[in-house]
Simulated scan of single mutants.
Amino acid sequence: MSLRIHFTADDLARITVAPRPDPMWELVNSLHTLQARQAVPEHAPWLRHVRKRLARSDLRGPIRLLTTLVPPAGDLPDFLTPPPHGGGLEAARDLIRATPAARLRSEIASFAGRRKTTPSTWLRRLAEGDRAARQELDGAVLTYFRELLAPQIHLIDAVVQADRAHHGRDVLEGGAERLLNTLSPSIRWEPPTLVADYPRDGDLHLGGRGISLVPSFFCTGRPITLIDPGLPPVLVYPASRRSGFAAPLDGLPELLGRTRAMALCALVSPCATGELARRIGVSIGTASKHASVLRKARLITSTRRGGEVVHALTPLGRELAQGRRGVSWCCGT
């Protein structure tokens, strides 16, 4: 089954690629990952981080609330993923909080109908526009993002930025059609239609509106779009993890060990030992040991600042971490 996205000449001129990870698309896609029976290897560091957080904090309430709206697979209400914007999570939360009551009722009713389930008491309250229910949803979004996504955002951002760099070269070398033909193995360009593997057959006519392409770290396999064709068109697709751009360094994880290689990559942005531990999903003691080995190999420097030790890459460490073309390989396959 396929989703067919129909382009006009105007649409080809109005394609945009998100400049950074979209917070709400990453949030809902990560919830799919969290509920999956089997995760892809690229998400293993994040899942380790989640397990450690769950052992220390009571996050099951916010997760339970969010999974009421985000099932393991399938559609979710469009209001959870407002149009791409540059305002980050705060702007997205503002848009979600401002969702008109009529839209909440309509989308939640359709969602429950597709799931063939009876809405929970909380979901019925939300559909009715109950202020407390809206606040509970906003609190769950903020807590989930702050505790489970923000500490790993450098890994998410590295993959999305690498994907954007790849596709920037595609546009320079072959224009919009080259871009559309190289998005993902599950997407193919059959002019003037973009055909994507999808859970059901459907057509989306852009009609000159253009489309926002959103690479996502947590999106795997098939791309995702909105349910309502009247909303600004968007296609969320798996961020590329092409290994060809760093081929001379592909053996580095085997040389250093995967976790130590991840630590090297995580230090593209300098940080203290505790933050390094959060970034790669290990204990502070383990992070300190990895930093010590990297320091002895002259790949990083460590400087005491007050009560913390801050680690940063040396020129050699940066070259290894980013590869000869400046593309991070730390989350590559």
Rank of each mutant, 00 (worst) to 15 (best):
P192Y: 00
P238W: 15
R53H: 06
L320E: 00
R103K: 15
R134N: 11
V282I: 10
A321R: 14
R51G: 07
T16R: 07
G323K: 08
M24P: 07
V17D: 03
A150E: 15
V214E: 03
L206A: 02
M1P: 10
T333K: 12
T225W: 10
G326C: 02
R325G: 12
L180N: 02
P191T: 01
L206G: 00
A9L: 11
R200T: 10
E128Q: 13
I5D: 15
R146E: 14
T220I: 00
L27K: 04
T8K: 01
T314Q: 01
T33I: 13
T333A: 13
T220V: 10
G74C: 04
D197S: 11
P45V: 07
L213D: 06
A92S: 10
A18T: 14
A196K: 10
S57R: 05
R105M: 12
T273N: 13
R114W: 10
T193G: 09
R105T: 11
A239L: 12
V141D: 04
P62A: 06
P21D: 10
R125V: 03
V268S: 13
V141I: 15
H43I: 13
P248A: 07
Y237S: 13
R14G: 06
A98K: 15
A18E: 15
G251T: 08
D10R: 12
L179D: 13
I63L: 15
A196L: 08
R278S: 14
G307S: 01
K289F: 06
A9D: 14
L180A: 12
P62S: 03
E173M: 04
H167D: 01
A247T: 03
E190D: 08
F218Y: 11
L95I: 10
D58W: 05
L206R: 00
A150K: 05
R103S: 13
I227G: 12
G113F: 03
P72Q: 01
Y198M: 08
G87N: 13
A132I: 10
H166P: 04
L149E: 07
H166C: 09
G317P: 14
D250N: 01
H85M: 11
P119A: 01
H6Q: 14
R298Y: 14
A101H: 07
A55S: 02
P229M: 00
T333C: 05
L66F: 10
L69E: 14
R125Q: 12
V327L: 11
L123A: 10
L183E: 09
V28R: 11
R242C: 05
R56P: 08
Q38F: 06
H43A: 12
V195T: 11
A277E: 08
V309N: 06
R241Y: 06
A39R: 06
R222C: 14
R295H: 05
L194E: 04
S328P: 00
I63N: 06
L69I: 09
A321C: 09
R125T: 08
T225P: 11
R278K: 02
L104C: 02
L80E: 12
R298V: 12
L27I: 03
T121G: 04
E319T: 07
S240E: 02
L256P: 15
H290C: 00
A55P: 00
R209M: 04
L54S: 02
P238A: 09
H205T: 04
L123R: 07
